[in-house]
Amino acid sequence: MKLRHLESFLSQVDGFEAPKWGLEQYLTPPHLAARVLHCVASYDDLEGCAVADLGCGTGMLLAGAALMDCDEALSVGVDADPDALSTARGNLDKLELNFSLLQADIVVNNGLPFRRVISEGSNFDTVIMNPPFGTKNQGVDMLFVRRALAFAPIVYSLHKTSTRDFLMGCGAAGCGKHVQAEVIANMQFEIPATYSFHKQKSVNIDVDLFRFSRRNSEDMEEAITG
């Protein structure tokens, strides 16, 4: 899949009708989403994989993952906002995608409303997400990572580069020695003026694509469910 083909496909994904600042809703730009997915594919964590997106918004990352041959039928987008999910559903129909959607709040709830899939140990192969940056609610970005690691052994997540030292320093999102964290790419997140308090037309924010991986899924059980 050529980068520009993926990007042009993703430009058809509808964004938030009325973004909510409380949820730090920003549409992942197609340009950025395409690059994130190429990175994930280069680690062989996409094709044929059951993928989850926590805070999926209108479904940009999963739409791209589907086009790059993730296992759509086993893939799920989770979001707390019914309006975003309604747009996501429109995107599914319009682009003939086949992943599932679920409304749940992974911030206040202790993870996802799922039973553990015992024999495999994980509900998903890979989580790919662009969580809230934690600008409004401090620490929410790390909480997303912790929750994600409870349901998948590999997590790809976008974070502000300005928080890199903090994320690495606090032991891979609070999971300590049980999780390996590395920055696999540095990218630009172009945020168009979305909210009324945005003075400039658009700003570019430096973001890191993190790859978190579990070292030992049994040992870390306690660390991630806290």
Binding site: P82, L85, R89, L101, L102, Q103, A104, D105, V108, N109
Partner: peptide, 14 residues
């Protein structure tokens, strides 16, 4: 609704 289960819990339930 629209094929999407709403599993949101209230503060009291959490």
């Amino acid at each position: 609704r629209g094929g999407i289960p709403d599993m949101m819990l209230t503060d009291e339930e959490l």
